[in-house]
């Protein structure tokens, strides 16, 4: 039981680190894409405002929630491994 708890805690911490890194990385990619878009559209208006607006829109969309798969996929993998090792 203690082993299970340790496994759970360590797994959660590691996945949280990965989750945090991915959030920062994807946001950085989005920001870069928005900056390029702004330049392609002819550099109209304030660059900062355009990018901030785009970031807000990104955060409202479904895509950042997809990063929660970082927690869900390992959970599924764990269930599959557990089943295959012990019950197949």
């Amino acid at each position: 039981m203690l082993g299970f708890l340790r496994f759970l805690v360590i797994g959660f911490v590691l996945l949280s680190v990965l989750y945090g890194l991915l959030i920062v990385y994807v946001r950085s990619l989005t920001r870069e894409r928005l900056e390029d878009e702004w330049a392609q559209e002819g550099s109209i208006g304030d660059r900062e405002a355009y990018v901030e607006e785009g970031i807000k829109e990104y955060e409202r969309s479904f895509r950042p929630k997809l990063l929660l798969l970082v927690y869900i996929l390992p959970l599924i993998a764990f269930c599959v491994i557990f089943y295959v090792t012990n019950f197949m």
Binding site: G3, F4, R6, F7, F78, I81, F82, T85, N86, F87
Partner: peptide, 15 residues
């Protein structure tokens, strides 16, 4: 292997 490393989660030794 239980909950330890490597993560095979093997509990069916007797089986």
């Amino acid at each position: 292997t239980g909950w330890g490393w490597p993560p095979y989660f093997k509990f069916d030794t007797a089986n």
